[in-house]
Deep mutational scan, measured.
Amino acid sequence: MAAAAAAGAGPEMVRGQVFDVGPRYTNLSYIGEGAYGMVCSAYDNVNKVRVAIKKISPFEHQTYCQRTLREIKILLRFRHENIIGINDIIRAPTIEQMKDVYIVQDLMETDLYKLLKTQHLSNDHICYFLYQILRGLKYIHSANVLHRDLKPSNLLLNTTCDLKICDFGLARVADPDHDHTGFLTEYVATRWYRAPEIMLNSKGYTKSIDIWSVGCILAEMLSNRPIFPGKHYLDQLNHILGILGSPSQEDLNCIINLKARNYLLSLPHKNKVPWNRLFPNADSKALDLLDKMLTFNPHKRIEVEQALAHPYLEQYYDPSDEPIAEAPFKFDMELDDLPKEKLKELIFEETARFQPGYRS
């Protein structure tokens, strides 16, 4: 834990890192770190609560700039109880001085990944967590956004079992017609939660990839272990087919990539493993919904509104309290091709509203 900075004593240090967030945020305490930044909790002297502050230093890398800009653009436009918001952003007053960006968010005690390492969940908890994931996802999908990296560590939890989806750095506007060349190379989302079509096709992607990830998360809540822990690309596919069985001819016809289709045709026939054999203690309604989410063919996979209306979630289902976005989200430009200098300018502009004396 960093010592509390005395008023006016300059930035606090946390594990050798400068955290320049005073005077409003003090009493910093280390939480963890990701690929390009550290997260601390801090005391907000204005709202009198502890908050989470993520320090991001992305400006050396085009990919990190892209992810940072995506996350900020999306989260500043989203407003939903099951999606983490941005409360404040701290950065230098000029673009030349801006080396880091500090993002202030609600402090959540833990995440689903940490929880599943230590606790076996009751059916009631599984049901409530799944409902909140789908409630947040309904809003995301209504904005025409794909999260693309749903996994237990991106689901934040607090002691009252509130759940918030975080990390929109890989999110995209849904565009089933656009052929994202190089899709697989830039697709760094965790393999275990990846839909089979991501490994088999490169053309376009749809909201059904997020539903697949939610199915993987439900299976993990039922058993405290990942359902498809593939060691590499082909191993991942083999794990999936080992449980779902061989795809039907109709399902194979959806695979545009001939090499991928021929690979699947070359494999020995596998039978589907019954879900109640894998999860003998699970609620039968939970397994019915799991089956509809972990469907090989993305066109037959359940959609988020149908999933919310499934009998497993009937005690929570309330369409009048499951809000959607006001308007579909649009990125003005494809960020993939922009140089990091341009992305830095866009991050600077996007964060201006939090600067003292800002006038829109």
Rank of each mutant, 00 (worst) to 15 (best):
L28S: 08
L237I: 10
Q306V: 15
I53Q: 12
L338K: 09
R15H: 13
N144V: 05
G215L: 02
R67P: 12
H125A: 02
I83S: 13
Q66C: 04
A219S: 01
L252H: 10
P93K: 12
R77K: 12
C161H: 11
C65G: 12
D210P: 05
L163R: 05
Y193F: 01
E341N: 14
M38T: 14
N158R: 06
L163P: 03
P11K: 04
G357F: 15
L222D: 02
S202Q: 02
A309K: 14
P319G: 08
V39H: 03
A4Y: 15
I53T: 15
K259I: 04
Q249W: 12
I133F: 01
R301Y: 03
Y312Q: 02
P319A: 11
E60W: 13
G182R: 00
R261E: 04
L294R: 07
I83M: 09
R225W: 14
I140G: 07
K270A: 13
A7Y: 13
P339W: 08
Y187H: 05
G136Y: 07
I133G: 08
I243C: 14
L258E: 09
R67Q: 10
D88W: 15
V18S: 14
D179N: 02
A260R: 11
I240G: 06
M38V: 06
D251E: 03
P247T: 01
C216H: 02
S142G: 13
H125R: 00
K340W: 11
L343T: 10
F354A: 10
S248R: 10
M199W: 06
D318R: 14
I347L: 07
Y317H: 12
T181K: 11
P93I: 15
S202Y: 04
G242W: 15
S360H: 06
L252G: 08
C254F: 01
N144Q: 03
K231T: 06
L278D: 07
K164V: 08
I74E: 04
Y102P: 04
A5V: 05
N82Y: 00
A219R: 01
R261F: 06
P226I: 07
V49G: 15
F354D: 03
W275A: 07
S246R: 01
R353V: 05
A195F: 04
E220A: 01
V273T: 15
E334R: 12
L156V: 11
I198S: 05
E350G: 14
T295Y: 11
F168Q: 03
M333F: 13
L146W: 15
L244N: 12
I217W: 03
A42T: 00
A282Q: 14
Y358C: 01
D332P: 14
K73I: 00
H125K: 05
F59Y: 01
L258T: 10
Q236D: 04
L252A: 07
G169I: 11
A195C: 04
Y113E: 13
L200Q: 00
C166K: 02
Y64S: 08
Q315F: 14
T206E: 03
G10K: 08
D251I: 10
E314R: 15
L107Q: 01
L75P: 14
R191F: 08
N82T: 06
K330F: 14
G32N: 13
D100P: 11
S223D: 07
P268H: 01
K340H: 10
F129L: 00
E109A: 11
H120T: 12
N262Y: 01
L116C: 10
D291P: 09
K151H: 06
C216Y: 01
H61S: 08
E326N: 14
K73C: 03
S223Q: 03
S202N: 03
R261K: 08
E60Q: 10
L69F: 13
R70S: 01
I140V: 08
T159M: 07
V18A: 11
D251N: 03
L69M: 00
M333Y: 08
D318H: 10
T185G: 03
Y358T: 10
S248W: 08
S266L: 14
L112C: 11
M13T: 07
Q17G: 12
L121K: 06
G85H: 14
L156T: 09
I165W: 07
D336S: 13
G169K: 05
K203R: 03
R261D: 02
D337C: 15
R172V: 04
L241G: 04
L294G: 04
A260H: 09
A327G: 11
Q17D: 11
R353S: 01
I74P: 04
I165C: 10
Q66R: 04
D106T: 14
E81T: 13
T295L: 09
N262L: 06
P152Y: 05
L343Y: 09
D167P: 05
V18W: 15
D100Y: 00
K344M: 00
I209P: 03
M108L: 03
F183V: 01
L252D: 12
Y312R: 02
D111Y: 00
P328T: 00
M199L: 00
F354E: 04
L265H: 13
E305T: 15
Y30H: 13
P152F: 06
S41L: 08
M221N: 07
W192I: 01
Q355A: 14
I84G: 12
S320I: 10
M333V: 10
D291K: 07
K55M: 04
Q66I: 15
K300Q: 09
A282Y: 14
Y30V: 14
T160K: 03
P319R: 10
F59D: 09
M38A: 04
L200H: 08
K117G: 07
I347W: 02
G8C: 12
G85K: 13
Y30L: 04
V173H: 06
P311C: 14
S360K: 04
A2L: 15
K73T: 09
L289S: 02
G204P: 02
S153F: 06
A6K: 13
I227A: 14
Y102L: 09
K203M: 04
L121D: 03
A282M: 14
F329G: 14
H239P: 02
K117A: 07
Y205E: 01
G204H: 10
D111R: 04
S360R: 05
V101L: 00
A2G: 04
M38Q: 09
K203C: 03
Y205L: 02
L258F: 11
E350V: 02
F183S: 02
E33L: 14
D177V: 01
N87D: 12
P328W: 09
Q97K: 02
P339R: 06
L157F: 05
D167R: 07
W192T: 02
P356T: 07
I240R: 04
L69K: 14
S360T: 07
R359L: 09
G32M: 05
D179L: 07
S142V: 12
D337Q: 11
D288T: 14
V173W: 10
P323I: 15
D106W: 14
S208V: 05
Y64K: 11
D337R: 13
L184C: 02
D283R: 09
S248G: 11
K114D: 09
I302Q: 02
A189P: 03
N82V: 11
K48E: 03
F78Q: 07
V18C: 14
G242H: 07
A352P: 12
N27Q: 14
P93W: 14
P356S: 02
P226N: 13
T206Y: 04
L155I: 15
R194E: 01
L218H: 09
L157D: 01
I83K: 10
I103C: 06
E314H: 15
T190C: 07
V101T: 07
K342H: 14
G85R: 15
G37P: 03
L290W: 04
P339H: 10
R191C: 03
M13S: 06
C216F: 01
M108Q: 12
R301Q: 03
N224T: 03
S122Q: 09
K259H: 09
L130I: 12
Q355T: 15
P196R: 01
L218T: 05
Q132I: 05
Y205W: 03
A5Q: 05
V145G: 09
L234P: 02
N271A: 13
Y102S: 06
K55A: 07
Q355I: 14
L107P: 15
S248F: 04
M13K: 00
Q306M: 14
E341K: 02
K330M: 00
I90H: 14
L237G: 02
R261S: 03
A260D: 02
C161E: 02
L290R: 01
Y64H: 06
N45R: 12
Q62E: 06
A9H: 13
A286M: 14
P196T: 00
Y36K: 03
S223L: 04
I103T: 08
P268A: 10
Y102F: 01
L115S: 15
K207Y: 04
Q97H: 00
I89V: 05
G85N: 15
E314N: 15
I227H: 03
L278A: 10
R261T: 05
L112S: 08
F228E: 07
